[in-house]
């Protein structure tokens, strides 16, 4: 079963712009997604312009942290040395109840019990003093 990643030698996000805003909210353990401040359409991954009403105005909307498993893969051939000790991990797409989806991990579940649309809830993995990522486990 995979647990928190403590290595700091794998690729972290470049902490600037929207990515920094997004990961800073994760660091505060408040998973949030950018959305249009006017019409409330989510923009994930974050971007300058709303593709519905074309407003530049943005806000960060916290989510409850519950959702469902949309798709997954289980990497067994590492893309870098840092990942070897965590293999096999469940690299998933999770759909939040509010609508946006994200790449993440689903932990604490035997692989043969993974099911499409299974309910999951967020937990926070503090990778480094700077970067926290949101992961999920069965709800």
């Amino acid at each position: 079963m995979s647990t928190a990643v403590k290595h700091d030698d794998f690729q972290l996000p470049v902490m600037s712009g929207y990515a920094k805003e997004s990961y800073d909210l994760c660091k505060a353990h408040k998973l949030s997604f950018q959305r249009c401040a006017k019409c409330k359409t989510f923009r994930q991954p974050p971007r300058p312009l709303c593709n519905k009403c074309h407003s530049f105005e943005t806000e960060w909307a916290p989510v409850k942290g519950t959702g469902k498993l949309y798709a997954w893969t289980i990497p067994m051939n590492p893309i870098g040395k840092a990942w070897v000790s965590y293999m096999p991990y469940v690299a998933a797409i999770v759909e939040l109840d509010e609508g946006p989806r994200m790449a993440t991990w689903v932990t604490d579940v035997p692989h043969d019990q993974l099911k499409l649309n299974m309910p999951v809830k967020v937990w926070y993995d503090d990778l480094t003093s700077e970067v926290t990522v949101a992961k999920f486990k069965p709800a």
Binding site: F10, Q11, I79
Partner: peptide, 16 residues
């Protein structure tokens, strides 16, 4: 998108 939102979860190669 890959760099900032997939790679931190060990997803970086096309097959993944």
């Amino acid at each position: 998108t890959i760099r900032d939102y997939y790679r931190p979860f060990g997803v970086g190669a096309p097959p993944q």
